[in-house]
Design a protein around this nucleic acid. Structure first.
Lengths: 266, 266
DNA sequence: CATCGTATGTTTGTCGACAATACGATGATC
DNA sequence: GATCATCGTATTGTCGACAAACATACGATG
């Protein structure tokens, strides 16, 4: 009857001043949730897709129990919506949602930038290097007209920016926001055409960060988000026939690879 | 085999321009998650408490299945922590967590204030009225030395502030942050003594909002959060024997009231 | 006396099955 | 011909049960 004390259950994975890093074994629920997130990002599960439990469970190689638990994680994130007795589905972003996502991103990335500037020193320098690498990827992708790679680098850039700030909550919120960003581009059929100047935008941000020009940096973040919302919801200036970033046509809702369960799971 | 189309599954509950408000039938998982959140806020489940599934399920009058699903929601929020094969527990906030929570709150409330100022008009006026009411509650509670009521009014103030901004994502994030705020006061034994000047702090915020003094408003928010972190993590200036806001002693981890299931559930 | 190994009990993780409900199709009626 | 009612089917929501694993307590051994 005496329950285990669960010593320092909260900060266990977080701060590890010990010599040995704690073994990180992801639970099945973790794997399921992450797999679904990935499928959404990849466009394998387009916005609005209904998610049948039986089918998904079979594809993932688990039973409905753990699957449902994992999906509740995404419901809490807002990536899945649920209607009683009708099942769950991938959220689809309205124009208002898109504006809300980028508004939130502006707040989060602004906070991250402030923290980064306050950190300064080698941490800031390392971040600048990492961001520069992502900008280069973007340039290459833009030259090749590869929308998918361009979009991926874009997300990676902003994720790195926020993760470098060293705030658990900022990072966690940002992860969800980036997936919602993808859902936004999928939901608005006005597409995210391959814009060569996107790399320039990000390069300016890196430069402002490097020289620690706070006012300029925050202004760039703000306008970056404003521009994205306008492009997605307002009149999109598309007219070129470049490849665009859209969810693959969901003829077949695309199968999820079965996940290899952690060792020991039956 | 043809799956229902789930028309506008995403924005259904969100924007309701129709005459009839959609019937809000909360799922069992919703009720369970909300019940646990409430128990955490009330201090019935103090930080670090291990949560036995069988016992909780019995108290709530549900089986372990829906209970586990509901708890996964809170895991995603960060309110519950999980260790494989050892179960879940209420998160406990380290000093770093407390700082992170208030840092995040500063970002969120700043964004909310900006939106509010941009809204202006009757919406802003109504918010000011509501906030004023909360400030009065705080004054009364402070006079009586009622820490619990003071704390509740404090949370209500900030929740109203953010909810009035009309951003789904800000509101959702804020809800979690407020619970984490409570967990912070519970985790730091340096207590949240009844401070009479707390009402003054908030009154100044309302005033700045009323006269639309943006710079002053943002400065007040910032210093409000800084002060809270210093009080909680730094040397707490406690020496008075006023009632403090602490989790009730968990001799018996306090029972959860069974929840009345939505009509039709067996 | 301390430490290691073993046994036991309790709890989590997972699965399969049942019941209730919502949807779609079919048929009847005005 | 269109609308409404009825039936059948598929899927969700919920429950109970089994097996693996961890933690504790006890005993053996150096």
């Amino acid at each position: 009857m005496i329950r285990p004390s669960l010593p320092s259950l909260a900060s266990a994975e977080r701060s590890a001043p010990n010599r040995l890093a704690p073994v990180s074994r992801y639970s099945t629920v973790d794997l399921i949730a992450e797999r679904i997130r990935e499928a959404i990002v990849q466009g394998d599960l387009p916005p609005g897709s209904p998610l049948g439990e039986a089918e998904m469970a079979e594809q993932l190689g688990v039973s409905r129990g753990p699957l449902r638990e994992g999906m509740q994680r995404l419901v809490q994130e807002g990536l899945l919506t649920t209607v009683r007795r009708r099942g769950l589905g991938v959220a689809s972003m309205s124009a208002a949602d898109v504006a809300d996502v980028y508004s939130m991103r502006a707040a989060v990335e602004r906070a991250a930038c402030l923290r980064l500037l306050r950190l300064g020193g080698p941490a800031l320098a390392a971040t600048v290097r990492g961001l520069t690498a992502e900008v280069r990827k973007m340039s290459r992708a833009a030259k090749k007209g590869a929308a998918r790679q361009l979009g991926d680098a874009d997300l990676a850039f902003h994720r790195l920016l926020v993760d470098s700030a060293g705030s658990h909550r900022l990072s966690r919120t940002m992860r969800t926001l980036l997936i919602e960003t993808r859902l936004s581009t999928f939901s608005m059929q006005h597409d995210f055409v391959v814009r060569a100047d996107l790399a320039d935008d990000h390069e300016a941000i890196v430069e402002a960060l490097r020289v620690r020009d706070e006012a300029k940096l925050l202004g760039l973040i703000e306008s970056h988000m404003d521009g994205a919302v306008r492009r997605l919801t307002g009149q999109s200036v598309h007219g070129s026939d470049v490849e665009t970033l859209q969810a693959p046509v969901p003829d077949e809702p695309r199968e999820l690879d079965p996940l290899e369960l952690p060792a020991g799971a039956e």
